[in-house]
Design a protein around this nucleic acid. Structure first.
Length: 591
DNA sequence: GCCGTTTTCGGCCCGACTGTTTTCAGTCG
C-alpha cells in the first residue's frame, strides 16, 4: 500500500508546483484528483500497470498513466522530476501558510528571489517586500501572522478531540438572538478521522440581524483570535489554534448552505455538474434555474432575488436533482453520486443496529471493571450479548493472562453468565499475534474459548512482506474469529503495519474471519478505505469498543460506526449486529 | 490534464472577504 501513498505524494507535489508556476489551475486540479483517488483506495496499482488497466481508472489520462507506469517500473518519473526541478523545493511548504497562495509565492520568488520560509522571514524583517505590486503593509502583516499561525496551529486534529469543541460551540450559536438552528458541517459532519477546521452553519429568522450574530460569535469567551468578521461570515481561532468558521444564512436557504459547507468539495463538484445537466445551478443559497439565475439580481451576502427550485433542506435539494439523499459520511466522491442516481445507495448501519460488543476487557487484565460490572453495563445498553476478551500473556504490561489464569477466567465468565439473565456472555480472549504470526496460545487453549480475537500489539514496524505473512498466518489459525485492530495504527501517532491489505482481505474472505473496526480513539482500525475494500470482497466486519471500562462501553462504538458508515457498511455486513444464534454459527465456521 | 448519450475542442463550481485598489486580484472553503 505504500506504493499508493508514494504515488499520492508524487502527484500532490506535482500539483503544488503547477500552482506556483501559474499553469492552468485545471492541470493542478487534475493531478490532485489523481493523487486523491490513488491515496484513497486500495487499487492494486502494480497489478493495474502490469495488465495495462491503469489508464481505465477515471481521472487517469495519458500523462498520468505515463508517470504511474514509469514510477512503478523504476521508482521515479522523469516528467515529474523535470517539473519539480523547475521550482525551488522550498516554495512548496509555503502553500501551507494561511493567507499566502500560489500567485504571491511566485511573485516573491520571481521578484525577490525568495526560495523558502527562512528567506521569506528574513525578507519581511528587512523590509524587502515593500514596493512589490499589490503588496501593502497589511498584506505583509498578514503573511507574517500567517507564518506564526502555521507554527502555532494544530494541523489536523482528531475527530474525538474536535467533536466536543464543535458541539459546545454549536450550542452557543443556537443561543444567539435570531438564530433558529445551527449545525456543524464540513469534514466533522462527514466524520473524517481528522479535521482541519470546524465549520458551523446557522439559520437566521426573517428580519434577524445577521451582523449582530457574527459579532456575538466572535465575542464568545472561548474565542482566542478573530481572523475575519463580516456581516454573514466570521472566522476565529479557539483552543490554542483550531480554526472555526461560521456562516449565517436565512432559514429558507439553510439546507443548501449546510449541503454546501458539509462538502466534500469533490462531492459538491459532482452534484453541481448534475445540476448543470438539468439546466439548474447549485450554490450555497440554493438550487436555481440556470437561465433565470443568470438574469437575477444579486447582492453580496444575500440570496439571489429569485425563487429557488429547492433550498430549505438538504433532502429537498437532492430530490430536485433526481438523487436519493446521500448521508454525510458518504459524500467523498467515491461513487456515491452515481449510486444515488441509480437508487442503489446502501442503507448505512447505525449504532442501534449493534446487538453486542465482541472486544472488551476487565480487571482480569488491564480493564477497570469486573465481569459483572461490564455485563450489567452492556445489559443496560440493551445489548443481548457481550464477549469478554482480556489480554494474553505476552502483554505483560497489560497484565496479560497465562493459559492457566485464562482458563480460570473463562470459568468465572461462565459463572457470571449463568447468574445474570437477559444477556449472553461469551468467554473469549484478545490473543496476541506474535512477530511471526503464531498466536500467544496453543490451539488446545483456544478451543476452550467461545470466541477468539487475535490482534497485533508489538513489532509494528515490520516490512510489508513480513507483516502481511504475520496476519495471514493468524487468519489461518483454527478458532480465530476476528482480527482485532489489524494494522495497529494510531492516528497522528503511529503508522502501524504496512499490510498488503488486499491479500489480508482475500484470506479473511476465504477463512470466514471477520476484520475489526476498532472504535477506540485513536485507533479506528481498520480505516474507512480498508473497510470498504473488505466489504467489496464479502468480508464481514466486527465493530467493537475495545472497552477497558463501563464508560467506554457506554459510548458504544459510535466512532467505529462512523468509520463503517464512511465505508458504506450495511448492518448485515457486521457480525455483532447478528442474533446470538447467527453469531454462534459464524464462530462455528472456524472450528 | 482530463473528458465526451448535444463535445476530440472548449470547457472545467461558485461566492465571501480582504487588501489594494478606483474595478479587481488573491485566497479560501
Amino acid at each position: 500500500m505504500s506504493l499508493n501513498h508514494d504515488l499520492e505524494r508524487l502527484f500532490r507535489s506535482a500539483a503544488a508546483v503547477m500552482e506556483i508556476k501559474g499553469e492552468s489551475v485545471f492541470k493542478a486540479i487534475a493531478f490532485s484528483k489523481v493523487a486523491r483517488l490513488i491515496g484513497d483506495s486500495t487499487i492494486d496499482i502494480k497489478a493495474a500497470v502490469e495488465d495495462g488497466s491503469v489508464g481505465d481508472i477515471e481521472g487517469v489520462g495519458k500523462s498520468s498513466r505515463t508517470i504511474i507506469e514509469e514510477f512503478v517500473r523504476t521508482g521515479r518519473s522523469t516528467d515529474i522530476d523535470e517539473l519539480m526541478a523547475s521550482v525551488p523545493a522550498g516554495l512548496i511548504p509555503l502553500l501551507d501558510i494561511p493567507g499566502l497562495g500560489p500567485k504571491t509565492i511566485k511573485l516573491l520568488w520571481k521578484e525577490r528571489g525568495i526560495t523558502g520560509q527562512g528567506e521569506l522571514v528574513a525578507a519581511i524583517s528587512e523590509g524587502k517586500l515593500e514596493g512589490l505590486a499589490g503588496m501593502g503593509a497589511k498584506k505583509i502583516q498578514t503573511i507574517k501572522e500567517g507564518i506564526d499561525l502555521l507554527a502555532a496551529s494544530k494541523g489536523r486534529i482528531g475527530l474525538a478531540d474536535a467533536l466536543p469543541i464543535a458541539t459546545a460551540l454549536v450550542d452557543e450559536v443556537r443561543k444567539l438572538a435570531g438564530v433558529t438552528h445551527a449545525e456543524y458541517a464540513g469534514s466533522l459532519r462527514r466524520w473524517r478521522e481528522t479535521i482541519g477546521d470546524i465549520d458551523i452553519v446557522a439559520a437566521l429568522k426573517a428580519k434577524g440581524d445577521s451582523a449582530a450574530v457574527t459579532h456575538a460569535f466572535v465575542s464568545l469567551p472561548m474565542v482566542e483570535k478573530i481572523l475575519g468578521e463580516g456581516p454573514t461570515k466570521a472566522s476565529v481561532l479557539v483552543d490554542g489554534g483550531l480554526q472555526v468558521d461560521l456562516r449565517i444564512v436565512p432559514e429558507l436557504n439553510f439546507g443548501a448552505a449546510l449541503l454546501y459547507f458539509t462538502g466534500s468539495k469533490d462531492h459538491n463538484v459532482k452534484i453541481r455538474g448534475r445540476a448543470l445537466d438539468k439546466g439548474l445551478t447549485l450554490n450555497e443559497w440554493g438550487l436555481y434555474n440556470l437561465a433565470d439565475h443568470e438574469k437575477a439580481e444579486k447582492h453580496t451576502g444575500q440570496p439571489p432575488v429569485l425563487k429557488p427550485v429547492a433550498s430549505k433542506t438538504e433532502a429537498d435539494v437532492y430530490k430536485a436533482l433526481g438523487l436519493r439523499f446521500v448521508e454525510p459520511e458518504l459524500r467523498e466522491a467515491r461513487g456515491e453520486v452515481e449510486l444515488a442516481l441509480a437508487d442503489k445507495l446502501p442503507k448505512l448501519i447505525t449504532v442501534d443496529d449493534l446487538r453486542g460488543d465482541l472486544h472488551t476487557h476487565t480487571t482480569a487484565s488491564d480493564g477497570e471493571h469486573t465481569i459483572e460490572e461490564m455485563a450489567e453495563a452492556a445489559k443496560a445498553l440493551g445489548f443481548t450479548y457481550l464477549a469478554i476478551t482480556d489480554h494474553s500473556k505476552s502483554q505483560q504490561l497489560a497484565n496479560g493472562l497465562t493459559a492457566e489464569r485464562l482458563l480460570k477466567h473463562v470459568a468465572a465468565i461462565r459463572k457470571v453468565g449463568e447468574k445474570i439473565k437477559g444477556i449472553t456472555l461469551l468467554a473469549g480472549c484478545e490473543v496476541d499475534i506474535l512477530v511471526d504470526g503464531r498466536l500467544d496460545f496453543e490451539e488446545a487453549v483456544l478451543r476452550e474459548l467461545d470466541i477468539v480475537v487475535a490482534s497485533p500489539h508489538v513489532s509494528l514496524k515490520q516490512d510489508a512482506d513480513k507483516a502481511t505473512d504475520r496476519i495471514l498466518r493468524a487468519i489461518d489459525t483454527p478458532c480465530v474469529n476476528i482480527i482485532g485492530h489489524p494494522t495497529g495504527r494510531l492516528i497522528n501517532a503511529r503508522a502501524g503495519l504496512p499490510l498488503e491489505i488486499n491479500k489480508v482481505i482475500e484470506r479473511a474472505a476465504a477463512a470466514n474471519v471477520a476484520l475489526e473496526i476498532n472504535s477506540g480513539w485513536p485507533r479506528l482500525d481498520l480505516n474507512d478505505v480498508n473497510a470498504r475494500a473488505a466489504l467489496a470482497r464479502g468480508v464481514k466486519l466486527s465493530i467493537n469498543t475495545d472497552a477497558h471500562s463501563t464508560m467506554s462501553l457506554q459510548r458504544k462504538a459510535a466512532l467505529g460506526i462512523s468509520v463503517a458508515r464512511r465505508a458504506g457498511t450495511t448492518a448485515d455486513e457486521v457480525i455483532n449486529t447478528f442474533t446470538i444464534a447467527a453469531l454462534k454459527k459464524f464462530i462455528a465456521l472456524k472450528r
